[in-house]
Amino acid sequence: MEEKTLNLQKLNGILKSVIKISPDLINDKTSPETAENWDSFNGLMLVTELEKGFSVRFTIDEIIAVTCVGDIKDSLRHHGINI
């Protein structure tokens, strides 16, 4: 499978396990406003899991800047992840 698809699956898997959201409902606009379980605490859990999953480390500015799934992808791309 293509690298990008794999990474996307990985991201959706992490979102599913932390935010408890079904992958069919995930799109770039998914945000704390639309996902019920995406509170500030789960947001931080998400950081930890994404860092583990993609072997990256976000800066505190990047963490604060994230408002939706699209932002997460941007950040990951910024760290060289093909997604």
């Binding site: 931080l44 930890t48 800066t59």
Partner: peptide
Amino acid sequence: DRRLYFLADI
């Protein structure tokens, strides 16, 4: 984790 500490007092 200093980031989590400064962000959320963790």
